[in-house]
Deep mutational scan, measured.
Amino acid sequence: MKVIFLKDVKGKGKKGEIKNVADGYARNFLFKQGLAIEATPANLKALE
């Protein structure tokens, strides 16, 4: 799953980066902790 990092995550990505991560890791950790959001077209446009 492609995500946009909202904060730096050690070993995974830095704020503003778009990367592929495992679906479960994204849903169960990154999204719940507020560290990333899904890289949807609307979210990508908002990032610009």
Rank of each mutant, 00 (worst) to 15 (best):
N20G: 07
L44I: 14
A42D: 13
K32S: 11
G24V: 12
P41H: 10
K2Y: 15
I18E: 04
E38A: 10
E38H: 06
R27S: 06
V21F: 08
E48I: 13
K32L: 12
F29L: 08
K10M: 12
I4D: 00
D23S: 15
A39D: 02
L6R: 02
E17D: 11
E38M: 09
G13P: 01
N20R: 13
N43G: 05
M1D: 03
P41R: 09
Q33R: 15
N28R: 12
K10D: 12
F5G: 00
K14I: 10
Q33W: 15
F5Y: 08
E17K: 03
G16Y: 09
K2Q: 12
V9A: 04
G16H: 09
V21T: 04
A46S: 12
E38V: 06
G34T: 03
K12W: 15
M1S: 06
G11Q: 05
D8Y: 08
M1W: 07
I4S: 01
R27T: 09
M1P: 04
E38K: 08
I18T: 05
K45M: 14
L35S: 04
T40R: 03
T40Y: 03
A36V: 07
A26F: 14
V21W: 02
E48G: 12
F31K: 02
K32F: 08
A36D: 01
K15A: 13
A46W: 15
Y25T: 06
D23E: 15
G11A: 05
A42H: 10
A22R: 13
G13H: 12
L35E: 02
I4L: 10
A46Q: 12
L6T: 07
K2I: 12
A36S: 02
A42S: 12
E38T: 05
D23V: 15
L6H: 01
K15Y: 06
R27L: 13
A39H: 06
P41T: 09
G13R: 02
F29K: 07
K14F: 13
A22Q: 14
N28M: 12
K10L: 13
G34N: 11
A26V: 10
N20K: 13
K45I: 12
R27Y: 11
K7R: 14
E48V: 12
L35R: 04
D23M: 15
A26S: 06
K10Y: 14
K14Q: 11
I37D: 02
M1F: 09
A42P: 08
L44T: 05
L6I: 11
M1H: 05
K14D: 05
A26K: 03
G34Q: 09
A39Q: 02
N43D: 06
L44M: 11
L47I: 11
K19L: 11
V9T: 04
L47V: 10
K45T: 09
K12L: 15
V3G: 00
G11H: 07
K19H: 11
A46H: 11
R27N: 08
G11F: 08
K32D: 08
K19D: 03
Q33G: 08
A22L: 11
G13I: 06
A46I: 13
L44N: 04
K19N: 05
A36H: 00
A26W: 12
Q33K: 14
N20H: 14
K12N: 10
V3R: 00
F29T: 08
